[in-house]
Design a protein around this nucleic acid. Structure first.
Length: 453
RNA sequence: GUGGCUGUAGCUCAGUUGGUUAGAGCACUGGAUUGUGGUUCCAGGGGUCGGGGGUUCGAAUCCCCUCAGCCACCCCA
């Protein structure tokens, strides 16, 4: 038989995902959804409302602020109607468009949260993907310090609800930085100066000074004075005291310091433990549009992973799309970073099922009975899976074990003849017999008790 | 976008100076006289050695290209 006569193998397409794009298996999706669920509940508990916007926007909406970086990272193409479109690269630009378009219906202040994927065609690295989730919350249309404080309260509530106890919210105010720059005659070069300053923790003082001289054209003296302020140390109160003379004479700077004092006091009133708050004059965040309070949150046990929740105040969110000035403040939870951190800190229990209980399919003729049992358990709020085949009990339990179920229901002819079933605790291996009629309430109580531990 | 490192089974890797039918552990599927898992034992499925081209009698092994991953830089609106 020659090669050409051999039956051809069907040509298979290699299953693969695009660079920077990921599949999520149940094992990783379950903790992921849990985190998103917690974020939703916390946001809602502060009165933020959910919104969503389209994945695709007109290209001009997204490139409005255009820079080379935008071009490099934006996924863009022409749709079938020859329109130039792009995929959103963050949730802030769509929010700006959204409020410009709907602010009259929404009214101010407007508080929204938005949890959705965004796309950036940037180079991949650990923790940096081309498709990733953002979890933003923002308050639009108020300058009140109450909104600034609330942002910190939300961050505290979020991380606490997720299960973190040891974390620090670093707080700064761009006004202070800008006030100082104003005094130094560096207002024009604010952006490159702050961009350099933001690298302080990473590269060290001398390099930052060198970069400021090189890229922002400052004198060494100017650069040093910016650093003097940025490297102030001590308690929050001590830093505030040292800050005051440094900004004296700059209206902006003085207002900024006062604002910081109010925010710190407010967070305390709001119940945030003082060890979780740190006035940090060195954080600037690269983003140009921040004009007021700035937040970055670090895990005390894993500071190297970077900020897991950051944000800040901006003066004019939607200036590209409307004449109406809309100030606001918001922040974003770094979902991927947080999940990576939780994994590293062993805060994630590995399960492959969302269900609590596996109902084994034991006696072939009793499928109806098993369906009834499963239904009654669900009615009691228990998540239940019914095994679909009458395999040997040992194998069904093996399945339950491998997937991470906590309990199995076992009921063969013997139990069913007594209108009873066994609840087997898969962690301890012990089983108890219950009347079917009472099983749902009793199991719900058992689960509740186990959860509270 | 720039530079460096890596790529053998789903995962972690072994594979002698290029030499027959490419291996192990874990995982997966099934079984160990048909009502109880996480231990053990047995068996099985699964790999065009990332892909393409080249050198060679012969390539997982050497060369080129490409794709993907990791690290650093850039950047992070």
């Amino acid at each position: 038989m020659s090669d050409s006569d051999k039956p051809k193998k069907p040509q298979l397409i290699q299953p693969r995902t695009l660079k920077g794009f990921r599949d999520y298996l149940p094992e990783s999706m379950i903790p992921r959804e849990r985190l998103i669920q917690i974020a939703r509940e916390v946001y809602r508990s502060f009165g933020f409302s959910p919104i969503d916007t389209p994945t695709l926007e007109y290209l001009e909406i997204l490139t409005g602020k255009g820079s080379d970086e935008t071009d490099r990272q934006l996924y863009k193409f022409q749709d079938h109607g020859k329109r130039d479109v792009g995929m959103r690269f963050d949730l802030t630009v769509p929010l700006a468009r959204f409020v410009a378009q709907h602010i009259n219906e929404l009214g101010t202040p407007f508080k929204r949260y938005h949890i959705a994927p965004v796309w950036r065609g940037e180079n991949t690295q650990r923790g940096r993907y081309r498709e990733f989730m953002q979890c933003d919350f923002d308050t639009i249309g108020t300058l009140s310090v109450a909104a600034d404080i609330e942002t910190g309260l939300v961050i505290n509530a979020l991380l606490s609800a997720i299960g973190f106890e040891r974390f620090t919210i670093h707080i700064n105010n761009r006004q202070v930085l800008n006030g100082l720059l104003e005094k130094q005659g560096l207002s024009e070069q604010a952006t490159p100066v702050l961009r350099s300053l933001d690298k302080l923790a990473k590269t060290g003082e001398d390099k930052v000074v060198a970069e400021m001289i090189a890229t922002a054209g400052t004198t060494e003296e100017q650069a040093r004075s910016v650093l003097t302020m940025a490297t102030l140390e001590g308690t929050d109160q001590e830093i505030l005291t040292q800050l005051k003379p440094l900004v004296r004479g700059s209206e902006l700077g003085e207002a900024g310091v006062e604002r910081l004092e109010q925010i710190l006091a407010g967070l305390q009133s709001g119940g945030v433990p003082s060890e979780r708050i740190k006035l940090d004059v060195s954080i600037a965040r690269g983003l140009d549009y921040y004009t007021g309070a700035i937040f970055e949150t670090f895990l005390d046990d894993l500071p190297n992973i970077g900020s897991v929740c950051s944000g800040g105040r901006y003066d004019n969110l939607a200036e590209l799309y409307t004449k109406r000035q809309l100030p606001g403040i918001g922040a974003s939870l770094g979902l991927d970073r947080l999940l990576a951190a939780m994994e590293e800190l062993n805060m994630i229990t590995k399960v492959k099922t969302p269900a609590d209980v596996l109902v084994t399919y034991f006696d072939k003729g009793s499928l109806g009975k098993y369906l009834e049992i499963a239904a009654s358990l669900r009615t009691a709020g228990i998540k239940v899976e019914l095994y679909p085949d009458t395999k040997k009990l040992g194998q069904q339990l093996k399945y339950a074990d491998a997937r991470g179920f906590d309990y199995a229901i076992i009921a063969g002819e013997d139990e069913l003849s007594r209108d009873a079933l066994q609840i087997k605790d898969l962690k301890t291996g012990q089983s108890t017999e219950h009347l079917i009629a009472n099983a749902a309430t009793e199991l719900a109580a058992i689960i509740k008790k186990a959860d509270s531990h």
